[in-house]
C-alpha cells in the first residue's frame, strides 16, 4: 500500500525527463508569478485610472499583466530544464516579422502617448490641423490609441493616424481664454476719418463681450486704391469669438451707415488711348 504513495524521482513531459522536485519548483514559480501579475495588474489599474485616459489605462494594465505572465512562464520553463533554444529562435524570427508588420501601429501608439502627454489638443477643442496633411479643421472627438477623430465643421468625421496629427501643425482655437478679432473696413477718401474711428470705437465700448482690456485698437492702417482701410482689433472671450465677430461686422456697417459714412465700392478710372478720360465704375 505504501509503495503506491511513493513519489517518482522524475516525470516524462513531452518526451523529456524532469525531476519531480524541479517540476514542483516550476509549479510554485508559476503560481507566484500569476499572483504577482494579478497584484501588479490591480495596482497598475488603480494608478492608471486617475492619471491616464481609460483607453491607455486598460492597455497599460493588460501590458503589465501579460508581461509578467510571459516572464513567469519563460522563467518557469527555463527552470524546468526544457530546452527553449528552438522557441527563442522561432520567437526572434517571428518578432522581426511582426516588428516590420506593426511598425506603423507602434509609431501611432507612441504618437498617441505623446499627444496625450504634450496635450497640443484635447477632446472638445476646436482645432486646425495643417502642414503635413491637407487642412482639417473641426472639433476633436476622440484621441485614441492609434487614431484621433475630428468632427469637421460640416458635421462629418475624419479619422487621422496619431503619427500624422503629432507631426502636423496644430492650431488650437480654445487653448487661450481670449482671442483677438481683426476686422478691416474701408471708408471713402471724402469721409471724416476721425468721425469713422470714433463711431467704431464707441460701438466697441458698447458691445458687452468686447473686453475692456486688452484695450481695443481702431486705427487707419493703409491707404487703399479707393478707400482708407481702418483696422479694428479687439479681444473677446474665445468661447464667443465667432458670434461677436459676426455681430460686430453687422453693427459696424449699420453704425457707419447711420452716421452717413460711406463704405466705397471698388472704383477704376479708365483712360482711352486718344486721351479722353472716362470715369469708370
Amino acid at each position: 500500500m505504501f509503495a503506491l504513495l511513493t513519489i517518482p524521482q522524475s516525470i516524462t513531459i513531452f518526451g523529456q525527463q524532469i525531476a519531480t522536485l524541479t517540476l514542483l519548483q516550476t509549479i510554485i514559480t508559476l503560481i507566484v508569478g500569476f499572483i504577482v501579475a494579478y497584484v501588479a495588474k490591480s495596482l497598475t489599474s488603480k494608478y492608471a485610472k486617475g492619471n491616464l485616459p481609460t483607453d491607455y489605462s486598460k492597455k497599460l494594465t493588460l501590458l503589465v499583466y501579460y508581461g509578467i505572465i510571459a516572464i513567469t512562464v519563460i522563467s518557469a520553463l527555463a527552470q524546468s530544464g526544457i530546452d527553449l533554444t528552438g522557441l527563442f529562435l522561432a520567437g526572434g524570427f517571428a518578432g522581426i516579422v511582426i516588428g516590420f508588420a506593426t511598425q506603423s501601429l507602434f509609431s501611432n501608439l507612441i504618437s498617441g502617448i505623446f499627444l496625450y502627454m504634450d496635450k497640443p489638443l484635447k477632446v472638445g477643442d476646436p482645432v486646425l490641423i495643417t502642414g503635413k496633411l491637407p487642412d482639417v479643421s473641426g472639433v476633436v472627438v476622440t484621441i485614441g490609441v492609434l487614431t484621433s477623430r475630428i468632427r469637421i465643421f460640416d458635421g462629418t468625421y475624419v479619422t487621422l493616424p496619431n503619427t500624422d496629427v503629432f507631426s502636423s501643425e496644430i492650431h488650437n482655437y480654445s487653448a487661450t481664454i481670449a482671442r483677438r478679432i481683426q476686422i478691416t473696413i474701408g471708408v471713402g477718401y471724402d469721409e471724416d476719418l476721425d468721425k469713422a474711428i470714433k463711431v467704431i470705437t464707441n460701438l466697441l465700448a458698447d458691445t458687452p463681450l468686447v473686453l475692456v482690456e486688452p484695450t481695443p485698437n481702431v486705427y487707419a492702417a493703409s491707404v487703399g486704391e479707393y478707400a482708407i482701410n481702418i483696422n479694428i482689433w479687439c479681444w473677446v472671450p474665445s468661447s464667443v469669438m465667432f458670434q461677436v465677430q459676426m455681430q460686430l461686422i453687422n453693427q459696424i456697417k449699420k453704425h457707419l451707415n447711420d452716421n452717413n459714412i460711406k463704405i466705397p465700392l471698388p472704383r477704376r478710372i479708365l483712360q482711352i488711348a486718344d486721351g479722353n478720360r472716362v470715369a469708370g465704375t
Binding site: T176, I177, A178, P208, L209, L211, V212, P237
Partner: peptide, 19 residues
C-alpha cells in the same frame, strides 16, 4: 447695468472677469 468684461492676466493663464 452695463455689462462689461475684462481679461485679468494673460490669455493662457488669466481669467475673464465681469468689469
Amino acid at each position: 447695468c452695463k455689462q462689461q468684461y475684462i481679461l485679468y492676466g494673460t490669455p493662457e493663464h488669466g481669467a475673464i472677469c465681469r468689469y
